[in-house]
Design a protein around this nucleic acid. Structure first.
Lengths: 192, 192
DNA sequence: CACGTTGTAGCACGGTCGTGCCACAACGAA
DNA sequence: TTCGTTGTGGCACGACCGTGCTACAACGTG
């Protein structure tokens, strides 16, 4: 007895509409009306799956984190630890339109955190996940598993992400990949 | 013939009110009414110095950048290039309540950039200024003035700033200073 | 004194906001 | 068929929004 409406699909559709509004009109333009209109449904239908605006925003943020986590999980685990680590961490860099949009939306939603405390919690969970990935990368590369090594990698990763975000969508991104690769090679060469 | 009202002081007072609202209620709560109330003036008075809401927000963002630039300019230029570079770049890290608030507000305002394009321009100017400081630091430390060295330092700096922001206000910050110092020492030891 | 300038205070308009609430269609189960 | 469930669409309320506009007080200048 499947429900006549696929609630999860509808939720994802509305979350995508949120992302689109954020990207084109800014997070200030996100309202139940604009999002419903963007998704092509009535406000009442939106409110059937998201009774309040907060739930809509929180789900949208959670879905972004979840998508990124899935992409990381889907990275093939071949023999070369450096190539694998690079591939994993590059999934967290806005190197194409999709990842760029995700990061931009995430940043905008996080900026609303004082009003929606749940968003701060989502941000913290995501940060913890990325920190874990950095730690695993350091371990598999055989680097010193200093706390400082992990933290430097993590900070460098997020700093690169931030700078990629503020350059125009079409611009060159190879410099960022090269910098990340250099850091991973540097970690691998410092055995401890 | 000084004007009876110090317009610049009034503007700064209102900008501070903007910051306070952003920090306590989120950027979504910034309106001419809330800001005027926070500053203890009538809406009409606010609009006497900031005819539109956009001008209020833009000035608030500009003032933050300007303050940071002044702090950097005020760093004493002693003999040790490493200590000087460290002191300069630490001014751009949210290591105390003041710098923390500045950065938090800046992030929130930047998230509004799609709606207020002027804010994106302010963000880009600030980024260019920080990039210049990073370049100067690399030069004075005698490091390779690779583009990649400068970009790496800049990314690490902003990544550290981001991570400091998401930890609680009272927590330990020495790890970030240590990481920044290590990076500068590394640059100084790679002559080219 | 009168007069223009400067600054304060606030009313009112048209609009958008989130949300409570209801009417109604579509459907499966009885 | 009749019923309850599920989903759609939308009206309406009170609140808040930015801003155009006016009334008025306070002041320097003539």
């Amino acid at each position: 007895m499947p429900p006549r409406l696929d609630v999860d699909a509808r939720r994802a559709q509305l979350a995508r509409a949120v992302w689109h509004v954020v990207l084109t009109q800014g997070v200030g333009a996100v309202s139940v009306r604009t999002v419903a209109h963007e998704a092509g449904v009535a406000v009442g239908s939106l409110r059937h799956v998201f009774p309040t605006r907060a739930e809509l925003l929180e789900f949208s943020a959670e879905l972004i984190v979840q998508r990124a986590a899935e992409r990381v999980r889907a990275v093939p685990q071949d023999g070369d630890p450096l190539a694998h680590a690079l591939a994993v961490l590059e999934e967290l860099l806005p190197l194409d339109a999709t990842r760029r949009a995700e990061m931009e939306v995430n940043l905008a939603l996080v900026a609303e955190a004082p009003a929606l405390p749940r968003l701060a919690a989502i941000r913290d969970e995501a940060a913890a996940g990325i920190a874990l990935l950095c730690r695993q990368a350091v371990e598999r590369l055989g680097g010193r598993d200093d706390e400082s090594t992990v933290r430097r990698l993590h900070a460098l990763l997020d700093g690169l992400a931030l700078h990629l975000l503020s350059q125009e969508p079409g611009e060159d991104v190879t410099w960022a990949r090269a910098l990340l690769r250099a850091e991973l090679e540097r970690i691998a060469s410092h055995h401890g």
